[in-house]
């Protein structure tokens, strides 16, 4: 375990070096992602100019969930972006072999290989929105609450990673799975708004099958006092543990099945 931490630090150091080298790239990417998130906020604002509340949620409550959902999304984006490449070209081009011959956990290698600072754009916007809406809504940010919030954000990030891992592992079977990953990832958009606005089928899907509801809506609703501790925190933890296990299982099965498509 210690060895892995040390190695990750080494990987990270290399990234930071290249980051400094391509500083303009980094800044442009960051601004890009902040702007994309901002368009979503502008959309909500323009809509709320015309309605007092949305299914019982006021502007700042919606902003809170929206912002909260961005933080785990951004964290996952920063650390596990290589999964996108895994589902894209890594297996197609037979590049996966190299992870198998090194004396390190292949999943660790895949994840450590890439660090995507663009995700900080989402994290920054998320924190900003959560802070603004907290102050407008008089949410009492006690020490305990902040601890719980950080905890649920970590759980939610793992849910993101688990979903991405499970779907990109399909590539072991079908070689190119990026389109499937894209499709699944788009489902996360549902988690930015209250589940009550969706029909039963969609909210069930997002709660029990592809549990994006726990990356934003459920924990967010807990802090707004709209759902219980059980749903908002305990279930988020439980779901994140289960999804990581399931995803890792699929990944292992995939590696067993992997055959190089080398050239």
């Amino acid at each position: 375990m210690k060895r892995y931490f040390k190695l990750y630090r080494q990987f990270l150091k290399q990234y930071i070096k290249s980051l400094i080298e391509y500083r303009a790239d980094f800044i442009l990417g960051l601004i890009g992602f902040i702007l994309i998130q901002l368009t979503g906020v502008i959309f909500i604002k323009l809509v709320f100019n015309n309605i007092p509340n949305l299914s019982g949620w006021n502007f700042y409550e919606l902003l809170f969930i929206y912002g909260f959902a961005q933080i785990p999304r951004g964290i996952d984006h920063v650390f596990t972006d290589n999964l996108w490449l895994l589902s894209g070209n890594i297996i197609v081009q037979g590049q996966f072999d190299k992870y198998l011959i090194r004396p390190l956990n292949p999943l660790f290698q895949v994840i450590a290989e890439r660090f995507q600072p663009d995700g900080f754009g989402e994290i920054v916007i998320g924190i900003l929105l959560v802070t603004i809406s907290c102050s407008q809504l008089d949410i009492n940010l006690t020490f305990l609450n902040v601890i719980i919030m950080v905890f649920t954000i970590i759980c939610a990030s793992f849910i993101y990673t688990a979903i991405k891992l499970a779907v990109s592992s399909i590539a072991f079977w079908i070689k190119f799975a990026q389109s499937y990953l894209y499709m699944t990832y788009q489902l996360s958009n549902f988690a930015k708004y209250p589940m009550a606005i969706y029909p039963k089928m969609i909210s069930t899907l997002l709660t029990f099958v592809i549990p994006f509801a726990f990356t934003g809506y459920f924990p967010g609703a807990y802090f707004l006092g709209k759902t219980s501790f059980f749903y908002g925190v305990m279930l988020t933890l439980l779901v994140s543990v289960i999804s990581i296990f399931v995803a890792y299982f699929i990944w292992i099965q995939g590696i067993k099945r992997y055959e190089s498509s080398g050239s």
Partner: peptide, 25 residues
């Protein structure tokens, strides 16, 4: 076509969102 399915998810989100919006006024 699978990528397009992903875009349909976005469309579905906005569809339900707009329905909820019109219900709220």
């Amino acid at each position: 076509i699978i990528f397009l399915f992903g875009e349909f998810m976005m469309l579905a989100t906005s569809y339900y969102l707009w329905r909820a919006i019109y219900k709220s006024t």
